[in-house]
Structure formats: C-alpha cells, structure tokens
Simulated scan of single mutants.
Amino acid sequence: MAKELPLVDEEEQECVQSLVAEFGCTSHVDLFSRVTENKADWATAVTLMGEEYVIPPHTAFLLSDFKRIQPLVNYGRKFDLIVMDPPWENKSVKRSRRYSSLPSSQLKRLPIPLLASTNCLVVTWVTNRPSHLRFVRDELFPHWGIEVVAEWFWVKVTTSGQFVFPLDSQHKKPYEVLVLGRYRSSADDSISSSKTSEVPVEDSRLIVSVPSALHSQKPSLSEVLKRYVGAEAMCLELFARSLHPGWTSWGNEVLKFQHMSYFTLTPADDPADIS
C-alpha cells in the first residue's frame, strides 16, 4: 500500500457517516474508520484534511488500509460488481517509487466473500507479468470461491490510433489484462436459478482507449460492465484512487484524483435562467 494511515479507536462505533450535514454544510467526518457517503444529487467540493476535494454524487468511500477495512464489511452492503487494481510488485514501480507495491499473497486478506453478493462479477486488473496472471487464476480467485469466466484486454493507443508501444516489445506491452470471475458462495450449486439467469461474459474482449496522462489511472468500466450486472447493481472498487458516481470505493489513496487541482470548476447554472 502507498502510505500508513493513522490508527483509530478500536471501540465499536457507527460505520457510516454523511459527508454533508443538514443545511448543506460539510459535517465533521472521520475518514479513517467510517464509510463516508455523499447522498446528494450533485458533486460537492469539500475541505478534508486541509485540502479541497470534489466528491461525486451518490458516492461512498473509506480511506483506509488492510488494518482498517472492517468498516467496509460492517457497512452491510453486498456488491454485485467488484473491481480492483492491486499495486502489483514490479521493478518499474520500485525504481520510480511512485507508490508502494503489495506482495501478491497479501491480496488473500481481502474479505471478498463478506463483500460479494452471490454471482458477483469480480474484475481484477493484472500486469503483463505471467506469474501475476497465474496467481490470480490459480490461487487468488479459487481462494475466494471465484470461478474465472473470461480474460479481457485493455489496448492502449495514441490519439492517432497507434499502439503506445510496439506489440512485440520485450519490455512494455501496449495492453493490460483483466481477469473476470463470478463469486460462487458455498451455498450455491451448479443448477441454481440465479446462476442460470446471469448474463454470460464473453471471453477475450478488447477495450481500446487512449490512456490517461495520470500514472496508472485505468479507464472507467462502469458502462462496459453494466450489461453483465444490471443498471441497478451495487458496485465497489478496491485500491481505488478516484471516486465514481453511484459506486463505493476503498483504498489508502481513495481521494487522490479527487483533489481540486485535477478539476476545472465552472459556475452552476442559475435555475432562474433555465426556461
């Protein structure tokens, strides 16, 4: 993980809080031991930890590491879609020191069975290192009771449509892999009605886009995955570094790309001017 977060009181307490209090004022928030919700229908600019952030509408988040993930479990939601982008170990990250990596074995500590609904679609971004891909398919997903159903590829291109790196490059590839699986709880059986009614996920699908200028920021998968989980699905992102409307997000840098410096604010329309 990228940074150590402060310890919090171990005593049992409310696990959720509202970001905006009555009359539109920002309430006092405990970011490290409670899930914070913005229930408003609009994005909110707030000051947190002495910095300004933009919080999307209908968003919930928990700023914590593995030691303090329990409030997310206590939140009581079962998610239909879980997307994660783990900080995989690799030489480039170690050299650049952009963020701290995480040993693969530590990922097994994530309480996926406590967060996933039956047949939850779990999507994991994986680097092009073969050992990481094998670990996800052969160890991590089976450990959680997840059945691998597909592998997709995110192909990165320039604004002119060319690969960002040569396809046969020995060092960097112009694509990344996503492993998709369905969570099968121990109570499931192969002929359950919920399993037979789920939308099949196609294998080897390609997502093609121009990558963000921000390091390691992945494209949003909300629209791409909607058909497989439904428009009303409860969605969770793990190891998040930004927030998405309608999603719950967790990570120790969950607000990183919500900082005001990444946004250009424009005046809201005056309702009186709207005919």
Score class of each variant (00 low, 15 high):
Cys15Asn: 08
Ile207Cys: 04
Trp250Tyr: 11
Leu31Ala: 06
Gly251His: 02
Val46Ala: 14
Gly246Glu: 12
Arg227Phe: 02
Thr196Glu: 11
Leu243Ser: 09
Ser261Ile: 13
Leu167Glu: 05
Asp85Lys: 04
Arg184Lys: 12
Ser18Lys: 15
Gln106Pro: 00
Leu72Trp: 11
Leu62Ser: 07
Trp88Gly: 03
Glu232Gly: 10
Asp269Ser: 14
Glu14Asn: 10
Leu221Trp: 08
Leu221Arg: 01
Ser92Lys: 02
Arg109Cys: 08
Met1His: 11
Met234Gln: 15
Val122Asn: 00
Ser204Asp: 11
Ala187His: 11
Trp42Asn: 06
Ala40Asn: 14
Thr44Asp: 08
Thr158Asn: 14
Leu121Asn: 01
Val157Thr: 14
Ser242Pro: 00
Leu265Ile: 10
Phe263Gln: 12
Leu206Val: 05
Lys67Pro: 00
His259Tyr: 02
Glu253Pro: 00
Ser160Leu: 09
Leu48Met: 04
Tyr262Arg: 07
Lys108Pro: 01
Leu180Gly: 09
Gln217Met: 10
Phe66Ile: 06
Glu223Trp: 07
Ser194Gly: 02
Glu237Asn: 08
Pro245Ile: 01
Asp188Ala: 11
Lys173Asn: 12
Ile112Met: 05
Val148Thr: 15
Arg98Lys: 15
His171Thr: 08
Leu102Met: 15
Gly76Arg: 07
Lys218Met: 09
Val254Thr: 06
Lys3Arg: 15
Phe263Lys: 02
Pro211Trp: 03
Ile146Lys: 05
Val126Gln: 01
Lys67Asp: 14
Cys235Lys: 10
Val73Gly: 04
Glu237Val: 01
Leu63Tyr: 14
Phe153Tyr: 04
Ser33Gln: 09
Gly24Thr: 11
Ser193Met: 12
Ser160Val: 07
Pro87Phe: 04
Pro111His: 10
Ala45Pro: 01
Ala213Arg: 12
Leu72Glu: 03
Val224His: 05
Arg109Asp: 13
Gly251Val: 10
Met260Glu: 09
Glu12Tyr: 02
Pro130His: 12
Val149Asn: 01
Glu89Pro: 01
Ser101His: 02
Ser197Pro: 12
Val210Lys: 08
Glu14Leu: 14
Ala272Arg: 11
Pro86Thr: 13
Val179Pro: 02
Ser190Ile: 06
Ser212Met: 03
Ser100Lys: 15
Ser220Trp: 00
Lys172Met: 08
Phe257Met: 05
Ile112Asn: 00
Ser192Asn: 12
Val16Gly: 01
His215Glu: 09
Asp273Pro: 00
Gln17Met: 12
Ala272Tyr: 10
Ala213Ile: 10
Glu10Asn: 14
Ala43Trp: 05
Leu178Thr: 01
Val224Cys: 06
Glu89Cys: 09
Glu176Ser: 10
Gly230Ser: 03
Ala240Gly: 12
Phe141Asp: 05
Leu31Asn: 10
Ala116Thr: 06
Pro87Ser: 09
Pro267Ile: 08
Pro174Phe: 03
Ser185Tyr: 02
Phe163Gly: 04
Lys3Gly: 11
Thr26Phe: 06
Ala272Gly: 07
Ser33Tyr: 03
Phe165Glu: 07
Val73Trp: 09
Thr59Pro: 07
Ser193Val: 15
Lys108Gly: 04
Tyr99Ser: 00
Asn128Gly: 12
Gln13Glu: 06
Ala213Leu: 13
Ser64Pro: 09
Lys173Gly: 04
